[in-house]
Amino acid sequence: MEVILARYGEIALKGRNRIDFENQLKDNIKRSVKGKVKKQRGRVFIYPDDMADSLRRLRKVFGLVSISPAYSVEADIDSIKDKCLDIAEGTLSEKGFSTFRISLHRSQKKLKPSPELEKEIGALIVEKTGKKVKLKEPDLEISVEISDRAYVFSERISCVGGIPAGIEGKAGLLVENRESVLAGLLAMKRGCSLVLLMLKSTPHGDESLLEEFGCQQEHIHVKDITEADEISEQKGCRAIITGQQFEDVSDIGTSLPVLRPLVGISPEKAEEMLLIRQ
């Protein structure tokens, strides 16, 4: 594999400020992985120094909905057919398959229409492997996206989604317990960057999970909410985030707006969500 195709979903619905969201996402990707990153036609293309490590890290970049390790070939029918056949034969020898389909999307209008190309590539694979085409729920789906080059892949890895962390400004996260960490992750998913306010009276450890999802702010130890409030304002935070849930909501005594992402989530569901993200 040579390149990673990264897709975003919610960002595509933005209007005039869409470019700001895309640029923030691109910056976050650059901080997460080593390699060349470029943006083109609703996709982000990453040419990583380390493919396996980059795939692991990109799954936790907010704003991405899926990624695919792909081959990049010339945008001509012979090169595309050869690479699709390579993937089919490689999959057949490694783990086998009985049915397959070809899914092709093109912005390059010099080639034949997509349905004709799909049939032509599919016919070649049937001839060479003896396997059957199945359009619904096939064992193997080989996808081709054609723009300046053709990108061929057979794997689609789900990511965390949301919008890029940092696009909506800063918030102070009051780190008191495991629930605080989950509240921070949910806030990052909605575009916040975090200033971690570590209460000295509480045990810590789970906050390292925030770093895996791209939170790179320093940890600031505070003795109480008054100090946390002062530091939040100094750091330019627009709100304070807590891990309070419905049954323990209370006034925390800050002059800033208070965000409680877990207020509608049961303790059991919160614990389940935290374990999934770990």
Score class of each variant (00 low, 15 high):
R57C: 03
E74C: 05
G63I: 08
I80A: 06
E247M: 09
I163R: 00
P267Y: 05
I121V: 03
I19N: 04
E230R: 08
V152A: 14
E179I: 01
D27K: 14
L186E: 05
L186R: 05
L194N: 07
S32T: 15
I240N: 00
C215K: 02
G63W: 10
D49A: 10
D50V: 04
L210N: 03
L111D: 09
K110V: 09
I125C: 00
E141Q: 15
D50L: 12
Q278A: 15
K26V: 10
I276M: 07
I157V: 09
D53Q: 14
E268T: 02
K269E: 12
G172F: 01
E10A: 13
C159W: 07
V33I: 15
L262E: 00
Y151W: 11
I125F: 07
L173G: 01
H105F: 11
L275Y: 09
L135D: 10
P115C: 05
K134C: 13
L58S: 03
M51K: 13
V37D: 09
V175H: 01
T226V: 15
E230G: 02
Y47H: 11
S180R: 02
R260Q: 13
K132D: 15
I276T: 12
A228V: 03
G122N: 01
S250I: 08
I121P: 01
L197Q: 04
V144Y: 07
S180I: 02
V222T: 12
L64G: 03
P113D: 11
H219G: 11
R18K: 13
V160K: 03
M1K: 05
E247K: 02
L275E: 07
V3S: 04
V181F: 01
K170W: 13
I265V: 06
H219T: 11
L194Q: 11
L92Y: 01
K95R: 15
G236D: 04
S266Y: 10
K136R: 13
I146A: 06
E271A: 13
G42A: 04
T242A: 01
R31M: 14
L209Q: 12
R106Y: 09
D78C: 09
I225E: 10
D78T: 14
G96T: 12
Q108L: 15
L58Y: 04
L135I: 14
G236S: 09
L185I: 05
L135F: 14
I146E: 03
E155W: 00
I157H: 10
V181S: 07
L104C: 12
D206K: 05
K14H: 06
L111K: 08
A123R: 14
G63N: 09
F100R: 02
S68V: 04
